[in-house]
């Protein structure tokens, strides 16, 4: 069966550490609330066991170039 967690089209998600998150936020010059959101009950967030307040790093690939996207985990 197709799995929302493991599908090949879903880019790699991972929870990043506090210090990594802080340096990323500093590099953009923003606070966590300026990031796009992801719900705690999103299949990927559930799979990672992310808690509200965590930041998930997504390894996206468009046009053969890979880059990082970030989402702030929020309660529903």
């Amino acid at each position: 069966m197709l799995s929302k967690r493991e599908h090949e089209l879903v880019p790699t998600h991972k929870v990043i550490s506090h210090s990594d998150a802080n340096s990323m936020l500093a590099s953009f010059g923003i606070s966590v609330y300026n990031l796009p959101k992801i719900l705690v009950d999103d299949p990927q967030a559930k799979k990672l066991g992310a808690k509200a307040g965590d930041i998930i790093e997504i390894e996206r690939e468009d046009f053969g170039k890979s880059y990082k996207y970030y989402r702030h985990v929020v309660e529903r």
Partner: peptide, 13 residues
Amino acid sequence: VNNNVIETIYGGD
């Protein structure tokens, strides 16, 4: 306008 990040890199490239 509120400095929210919409994309980390414009268009992914």
